[in-house]
Amino acid sequence: MRWLQNHPKTLESMYGSTKWLIKKMGPMFEKIGNEKVDRWFRKPEEWSKQAMFDCQMCGQCVLHSTGMTCPMTCPKNLRNGPCGGVRQNGHCEVKPDMKCIWVEAFERSTQMGTWGADMMMIQPPVNRQLEGSSAWVNMVTGADQDVPTGWIGLNTITVLPKGIDYPTAK
């Protein structure tokens, strides 16, 4: 299923419709109980996302902001861009056989019309308490948007990219 990753445009629209659907199902989740739904969702979400993105189940998915490439597959778990150790051939410092996920993320993001420019957003620190839970349910409850109190007011700053032609400017 990994070949799908090289079709970021398709994935982007898939993400868009999944998001729409899950948000529609939100009130239903509430009725059943979010914890219960979280238990149901965990495994299917893990299987499907692992097959496609090698998902690490951080529980706060930012795939669409990182070129449909999971930042948690970076050995250093970097969520804001590549480290300074990328090899000249574009491979990872830690795993020489693996292409740097940020090199791929950057290439893919330039093909994405809706969320491509989100690469410039500053991603807040990971909430380690959400690890292992369903990111879809967390999206509905808003738990994935929770940032540390000190961070509030600073988490939405977007630097507009210059010099890179994203398909549509935001």
């Binding site: 990328v86 090899r87 950057f106 410039m120 630097v159 990219p161």
Partner: peptide, 14 residues
């Protein structure tokens, strides 16, 4: 001095 070179100035901006 390393890839992805197009991205490096953007990372600086970040």
């Amino acid at each position: 001095f390393i890839p992805p070179k197009d991205w490096r100035p953007l990372r600086l901006a970040k």
